[in-house]
């Protein structure tokens, strides 16, 4: 039998990896990869803890909503990335340092 703790260890490692990616990477797309890793870790926890009350489905329903929000977030993030790239000609977060339109 598989010890159930190992679900939580996998999810903890995924979460920490995503966090390290968000903290170190400078490219917008790679920061998004980190966010997706953290969301997946949270999903894994929800699904695993759902087995505590396996007659109810709350954990799995929460996971569905997290997936929906992740899809919406990815779409918006791509649109924002496109605008940022058009404005700054880069996807490097260190060079994106103003939210105002520059006066030409």
């Amino acid at each position: 039998m598989i010890p159930f703790e190992h679900f939580f260890y996998v999810s903890a490692i995924l979460f920490v990896t995503g966090m390290a990616m968000i903290l170190t990477r400078k490219n917008i797309v790679l920061v998004l990869v980190g966010v997706e890793l953290m969301l997946n870790a949270a999903n894994l926890n929800f699904v695993a803890f759902n087995r505590l009350h396996s007659e109810r489905m709350d954990g799995q329903i929460m996971t569905i909503f997290v997936m929906i929000v992740a899809a919406a977030e990815a779409a918006i993030a791509l649109a924002l990335l496109w605008q940022i790239y058009r404005h700054f000609q880069t996807a490097d977060l260190n060079k994106v340092n103003s939210i105002k339109e520059e006066e030409a």
Binding site: I28, R51, I64, M67, A70, A71, A77, L78
Partner: peptide
């Protein structure tokens, strides 16, 4: 963990949607 529907949804949404969006990005 007994979430067979979510496993399929995970593949469809993340691999089919989010990953493709990131590659586009």
């Amino acid at each position: 963990a007994g979430a067979d529907f979510l496993a399929l949804a995970q593949l469809v949404i993340y691999v089919g949607g989010v990953l493709v969006l990131m590659l586009f990005g």
